[in-house]
Amino acid sequence: MEVLWENILISIVAFAILYFLLHKYAFSKLFAIMEQRRELVMNQMNEAAETRKQAALYVEEQKKALDQARQEAHEIIERSRQTSNKQAEQLIEQAKEETVRLKAEAVRDIENEKNKAVEELRGELGSVSVKIASKLIEREVKTDEAQEQLVDQYLKEVGGRS
């Protein structure tokens, strides 16, 4: 086996031609596509990460909104309970006042009726006793002054007893 410089030359030329052909017609395109592919994958990964972050944010927001709603509902219930309690107290208060007022009115009415009855009774008794007295004593009581004095004295005795 001998080394032929012609073969060396031929192989160098052949390799150089192959290199330039491949570089020009194949590898540059392939590298560009691979770069694009890499970018595509990178973009998709970034997008996925972004979406995940957004989703987490959204869930957090939802949770917050839910919490807020729950708290509001709780407040509303609390408030309505308080107002109902107050109303009930007010009603009871009013009812009490009403009863007191009614009772006082009733007492006053009774008093009035009683006074009226006493007055009436007194008048009636006066005239009846005059009749009785005039029948009993007839002529002895002539003057009105003496008559009335007598009636009053009598009535006092009756009123004191009653």
């Binding site: 032929l4 073969n7 052949a14 031609i17 052909l21 194949a26 395109k29 392939l30 596509i33």
Partner: peptide, 25 residues
């Protein structure tokens, strides 16, 4: 000195490689 077998084999090799890569791209 032209070594015909070297020329042929280099040509075949280069052709196979080039066709393979061209098919791939």
């Amino acid at each position: 000195h032209l070594d015909l077998s070297a020329v042929i084999m280099l040509f075949v090799t280069c052709t196979i490689v080039f066709v393979l890569v061209r098919l791939a791209v």
